[in-house]
Design a protein around this nucleic acid. Structure first.
Length: 891
RNA sequence: GGGCGCAUAGCUCAGCGGUGUAGAGCACCUGCCUUACAAGCAGGGGGUCCCUGGUUCGAAUCCAGGUGCGCCCACCA
């Protein structure tokens, strides 16, 4: 840029290129903040703490948009509280993600032609740990690029020594309290992963299937009974038939028996309320080992449990001649055999829910096996009470109902998994059959001192460590200073999918272990979807990689766009180009700062502006700044991060840049130049602080360029959060609003009559009120300059006739311009006709309203008064337009 | 089968403690390289506020029913 004017050649301005380039400053500032220890609050005595624990991403995880949104929201809250002077702890970590991680390593092994069984348990675990050491921290690097201010010195992993101790401690406590039990139950079995899944991990999916009606002969008499099934292969495990006790059709059969085809087993016919007489034939085959309902029916009626499946979903020995077949092959084989005997009487297409493994999508099998469970009901009680007593809130509030409903109907939690990677269940059995849980690995049985002890081979569900996350990460079960300082945590931000998996269970664990809620507020963030509204997924290939967005537009752009794009809890639909919103805003801010810095001479004595020297535009922008700051505070208190982001955006772009900077231009060289400089700097500095939680990098970089006297900290990160500046100037604000309206009207007129930008026509502004006139006269030059008029003359009555076009600004104020030769008369005639018709229409509506006795008598007086004003305004406009039409026709 | 949410401009969404001619961003059109920013500036076009009914002086907004879409829960073989 030309540096002809020495005053403008400041070091600050010279350092800023006209285009904002985020990459270099992001890495520089992140390293700097970290090195200075800003992320690491101290425990013990000190200011009020504020804590957020991260929802730990899987160690196998790669940063996706969901993480980016979730962690940005948390960082916004954390950075603001830090600026407010609280000891803000954002505690990061990762989850060992049992099945997911084991799958990754098993896949690696498979490529080498090996299985985990080939390696053996010890060697396999060594290998998983090696994988974790190598790749486990990658997600941290990705989070750092987002700019999140996590305390990396406190990062935890769910299989850390400390967290493993916490897991043991809780398990043993639950065990000793009788809340852990082992039972033979129907669980969801994933044949591919070879493990049990909790109910939450088995995702139900509606799909098309066939419902077969099968005919079973009766045992001791002629005839048959018909039953329906979608899984014919399971008939091999049938051990009874159930009908509804009140079902007339089957009354005689209760107590009798049927014969299971292909097998010949005798099936007692029992009566049970669970049967829906309306569905199918009203008779149900009972397969206690392969269906959860049937399990309970069998339990009530003492029916045999016959497991016809192997863990890999091939048919077991119990399946007789079908043994060894895969379950789906067996289904066809059984059907063929039944058809051969004429026992398949109907096949019907239906839609039904099929469970699938949430990790690998394999169809899960209801499967009878020995598993460990946690009794949930006693744990759920305080978690439910917390909500009702207000110790816990969920935003958006509608999720509170969902949370409560789940807790009220909570089922026991299957916590054992038949995999190797995870916390091994701390239960041992001795040679004499004693079973016990222990905090430390024992070498003998505590009851009989037998040394022949064996540990349960299974590991715990991954969530059994993550439900302890808010306190295990702070050192529990030890009474650490961290725990005393930072627990309970304050805000938990997470996705709705894990409300039950994780959030509800954390609340339970919080009360059970700590006697206190683990966090005060739960924020449910929405799902980031693609432009078509589809969930971003690997298989669809429609995901937007946050790292690519950071590379292209910068972390600030990514953060701002995500936060500003949707209200809390609402899904966000985004295409990659949409992130230009944030990129453009960062660039706008950058250039606004460039402008200010270019116009602030070296050594400018910056300080709070002296109120006495302030003119209306100065007061207006400071007034707006205070309003914005209040809006941001209100929005953040209600966890409406999008509204807060939007408020700062609107202020900076539309108030500060569009108007105040433009006002400032001619004044900088005038006698009040330094006042304007002071206001420019003050407003910029404060809005940088307001924006910092959302866009940490660009705000820090620009803030550092400001005169040192304005900054009372080494970094904007630890600068105070802006409160009210005490700038309340409603009158000046109203005056400025009037000017903006007038300028808008003049610009509109010019555009409407195609006045070329070079042509500076004179405008006349008529204002009836003397006070309005005074304001307009005072700023006539600004009006002319900002609307590209050659002159703005202020009068009390608009001139009429002689081709003068007008534009009403509002009651009593009008803009007039002599059309002279500027206008195509024909076109203008048409335009006028349309406008007159429009106004006549509005006037008719308004008059009808005012003529309606019911409106006048029943509506509030002020509403009626406003309606009268409106009608009067319309009448005035109409009169004006008719005059104009007449004067055009004259020509 | 229950529960919850959504339906407003071509797209993504505000507005919905009731009141003047329903807003923003993107996209589109017109004119501007005005020395902070063309990643910008100024102006503009574009909407039976899903449908039906009700309450009211007045409904995008409140109520009821319907339709469509989405999510969650659930043992219909």
């Amino acid at each position: 840029m030309p540096e002809t004017d020495a005053r403008r050649a400041t070091p600050g301005a010279a350092a800023l290129p006209p285009r904002f380039d985020p990459a270099p400053l992001e890495s520089r500032w992140y390293a700097e903040w970290r090195a200075r220890g800003y992320f690491h609050p101290s425990a013990g005595d000190g200011p009020e703490p504020y804590t957020i624990v991260i929802p730990p991403p899987n160690v196998t995880g790669v940063l996706h948009m969901g993480h980016a949104l979730n962690n940005t929201l948390q960082d916004v809250l954390i950075r603001r509280e830090r600026m407010r002077g609280r000891r803000a702890l954002y505690l990061p970590g990762t989850d060992h993600a049992g099945i997911a991680t084991q799958n990754v390593v098993e896949r690696e092994l498979a490529e080498e032609g090996m299985s985990r069984q080939d390696l053996g348990r010890e060697a396999f675990l060594t290998r998983v740990w090696a994988w974790k050491e190598k790749y486990g921290d990658e997600i941290y690097d990705q989070l750092m690029r987002l700019g999140v201010s996590c305390d990396w010195e406190r990062a935890r992993f769910t299989m850390d020594e400390g967290l493993s101790r916490a897991v043991r401690e809780v398990f043993v406590r639950l065990f000793d309290d009788g809340l852990v039990y082992r039972g033979k139950y129907i669980i969801n079995w994933c044949p591919r992963c070879g493990t049990a899944l909790s109910d939450e991990e088995a995702e139900k999916e509606e799909q098309a299937g066939l419902l077969y009606t099968l005919r079973y002969p009766l045992a001791d008499r002629a005839g048959f009974v018909e039953v329906a099934t979608t899984r014919p292969e399971t008939i091999l495990g049938d051990s009874g038939i159930a009908v509804h006790p009140g079902d007339e059709r089957y009354r005689d059969l209760i107590g009798a028996a049927a014969i299971l085809p292909l097998v010949g087993r005798k099936l007692p016919i029992v009566a049970d309320d669970f049967v829906d007489p309306e569905f199918g034939t009203g008779a149900v085959k009972v397969t206690p080992a392969h269906d959860p309902d049937d399990f309970w029916v069998g339990d009530r009626h003492g029916l045999e449990q016959i497991n016809v499946l192997n863990p890999d979903a091939t048919m077991s020995e119990a399946a007789g001649r079908f043994a060894g077949l895969d379950r789906f092959a067996a289904r066809e084989a059984v059907l063929d055999a039944l058809r051969a005997e004429g026992l398949v009487v109907a096949e019907e297409e239906i839609r039904h829910a099929v469970g699938r493994c949430y990790r690998c999508d394999t169809v899960v099998e209801p499967y009878l096996s020995d598993q460990w469970f946690v009794r949930m009901e006693p744990l759920a009680r305080p978690a439910l009470a917390a909500l009702k007593e207000g110790a816990l809130s969920i935003t958006p509030a509608r999720w509170e109902k969902v949370y409560a409903h789940w807790l009220e109907n909570v089922r026991d939690w299957c916590i054992s998994r038949q995999i190797w990677w995870g916390h091994r269940i701390p239960v041992w059995t001795c040679a004499n059959g004693h079973t016990f849980a222990a905090r430390e690995d024992p070498d003998r049985c505590p009851k009989c001192a037998s040394t022949g002890i064996e540990q349960d081979p299974d590991v715990l569900d991954t969530w059994f460590s993550s439900w302890l996350w808010p306190f295990s990460t702070l050192g529990w079960p030890d009474e650490t200073e961290d725990l005393a300082t930072f627990y309970p945590t304050d805000t938990l931000v997470t996705a709705s999918e894990i409300l039950f998996f994780w959030v509800a269970r954390m609340v339970m664990a919080g009360y059970y272990c700590m006697g206190e809620h683990p966090f005060r507020d739960v924020i449910i963030n929405g799902t980031v979807r693609d432009a078509q509204g589809r969930r971003m997924s690997k298989s669809l290939g429609n995901g937007i990689d946050p790292r690519e967005i950071i590379d292209e537009y910068g972390a600030d752009a990514l953060r701002f766009t995500l936060v500003a794009s949707a209200p809390t809890g609402t899904d966000i639909h985004l295409a990659a180009e949409d992130f230009r919103l944030g990129r453009n805003f960062a660039n706008k801010l950058w250039n606004a700062a460039r402008y200010v810095l270019m116009n602030v001479p070296d050594g400018f004595a910056a300080g709070a502006p002296d109120e006495a020297g302030l003119e209306p535009p100065d007061r207006w922008i400071l007034h707006r700044l205070d309003e914005t700051s209040a809006t941001v505070d209100r929005a953040l208190a209600a966890f409406r991060m999008n509204d807060a982001a939007q408020a700062v955006y609107d202020f900076l772009w539309h108030d500060y840049c569009d108007w105040y900077i433009e006002w400032s231009k001619p004044r900088l060289d005038g006698p009040r130049g330094d006042v304007v400089r002071g206001v420019l700097l003050t407003a910029l500095e404060r809005s940088l602080r307001l924006l910092h939680p959302f866009m940490p990098f660009v705000t820090e970089e620009l803030w550092q360029q400001l005169p040192a006297a304005l900054r009372d900290a080494d970094s904007i990160m630890i600068a105070p959060w802006p409160g009210a500046g005490g700038w309340s100037y409603p009158e000046e604000s109203a005056a400025m609003a009037l000017l903006q309206q007038v300028i808008g009207a003049v610009r509109g007129l010019r555009a409407r009559y195609d006045v070329p930008p070079g042509r500076r026509a004179p405008m006349t502004i008529a204002a009836e009120l003397a006070s309005d006139r005074a304001t307009l006269e005072r700023f006539a030059d600004d009006i002319a300059r900002l609307s590209a008029a050659s002159e703005a003359r202020v009068v009390d009555r608009a001139p009429r006739g002689d081709g003068i076009a007008g534009e009403g600004v509002r009651g009593g104020i009008e803009i007039a311009v002599r059309l002279a030769d500027l206008v195509d008369v024909d076109r203008e005639r048409k335009r006028l006709a349309a406008e007159i018709a429009g106004i006549e229409r509005l006037l008719a509506t308004s008059r009808a309203k005012l003529g309606d006795e019911r409106f006048v008598s029943r509506a509030p007086a002020e509403v009626v008064a406003r309606e009268r004003e409106k009608a009067a305004d319309l009448e005035r406009s109409l009169e004006r337009l008719r005059d104009l039409r007449a004067s055009i026709e004259d020509r």
